[in-house]
Simulated assay, not measured.
Amino acid sequence: MHFGSAKKWLRGGLLALAALQTVASVWQYVFPRSFYDDFPTVRLDPPYNEHLISDVGGLGLALTAMLYFAAWVLDSKVVLSALIGYLIYAATHFTFHIRHFDHFSFLEAVGVGTGLGLEVALALVFLCVGWRVHRAESAATTRTEAVTRRDVSDQEPV
């Protein structure tokens, strides 16, 4: 994958993850009871706790801000840190749900497992792309520094 197109894919991926996270986080934070009552399968979880759901929504909004900022600046270190944070969140969320399908129908379990598994897969894909971009940027910086040092050492003293 070409460096420029990798960065475009990375920006698109970051924006997609941020958009998905925005919807859930705003819903959790602003309308926690509605999220608990209306989001598919959440009603199958333990009893409603407004404090817990709104706190999770607030944390999701923080993660959303990190993803949007990473997509905006496309600095590889910022991108990698945002994606690592998102991957940890997505993987732990996925792990919880696949271990708690007791009251789910088969279709609900497949839907939740697939949706949350897709978030983990996307985070891994974009993390790999981000890592490749980071390595390419680091290599380019190293080459530029080497050329600059060579050019400086080639100059004759005045």
Rank of each mutant, 00 (worst) to 15 (best):
residue 127 L to A: 12
residue 127 L to F: 09
residue 100 H to A: 10
residue 68 Y to G: 10
residue 86 Y to N: 14
residue 62 A to S: 11
residue 33 R to Q: 12
residue 22 T to H: 03
residue 104 F to W: 02
residue 101 F to Y: 01
residue 32 P to D: 04
residue 45 D to E: 10
residue 112 V to L: 02
residue 63 L to H: 06
residue 96 F to R: 06
residue 56 V to I: 15
residue 34 S to G: 10
residue 78 V to T: 15
residue 43 R to Q: 14
residue 113 G to I: 04
residue 119 E to M: 15
residue 75 D to T: 08
residue 75 D to G: 06
residue 106 F to M: 06
residue 67 L to T: 12
residue 108 E to V: 00
residue 22 T to K: 04
residue 40 P to G: 00
residue 49 N to T: 07
residue 87 L to I: 07
residue 90 A to K: 01
residue 122 L to I: 11
residue 83 L to M: 03
residue 38 D to S: 12
residue 78 V to G: 06
residue 88 I to H: 05
residue 63 L to S: 08
residue 29 Y to M: 13
residue 105 S to P: 02
residue 68 Y to C: 14
residue 110 V to P: 00
residue 39 F to V: 14
residue 73 V to N: 14
residue 112 V to D: 04
residue 61 L to K: 08
residue 22 T to R: 04
residue 81 S to E: 10
residue 28 Q to E: 15
residue 106 F to A: 08
residue 35 F to M: 03
residue 120 V to C: 08
residue 117 G to N: 03
residue 118 L to T: 15
residue 33 R to D: 04
residue 132 R to K: 14
residue 127 L to N: 07
residue 21 Q to L: 11
residue 59 L to D: 07
residue 73 V to R: 15
residue 70 A to S: 11
residue 30 V to L: 10
residue 125 V to E: 05
residue 108 E to A: 00
residue 108 E to G: 00
residue 100 H to C: 08
residue 63 L to C: 06
residue 42 V to K: 01
residue 70 A to V: 08
residue 103 H to Q: 07
residue 87 L to V: 08
residue 103 H to A: 08
residue 69 F to Q: 10
residue 82 A to R: 03
residue 99 R to N: 15
residue 113 G to H: 02
residue 40 P to W: 00
residue 93 H to A: 12
residue 79 V to L: 04
residue 107 L to S: 14
residue 56 V to H: 09
residue 55 D to E: 15
residue 77 K to T: 15
residue 57 G to D: 09
residue 98 I to L: 13
residue 82 A to M: 06
residue 75 D to P: 01
residue 125 V to T: 11
residue 124 L to Y: 02
residue 116 L to Y: 09
residue 55 D to W: 11
residue 42 V to I: 06
residue 77 K to V: 13
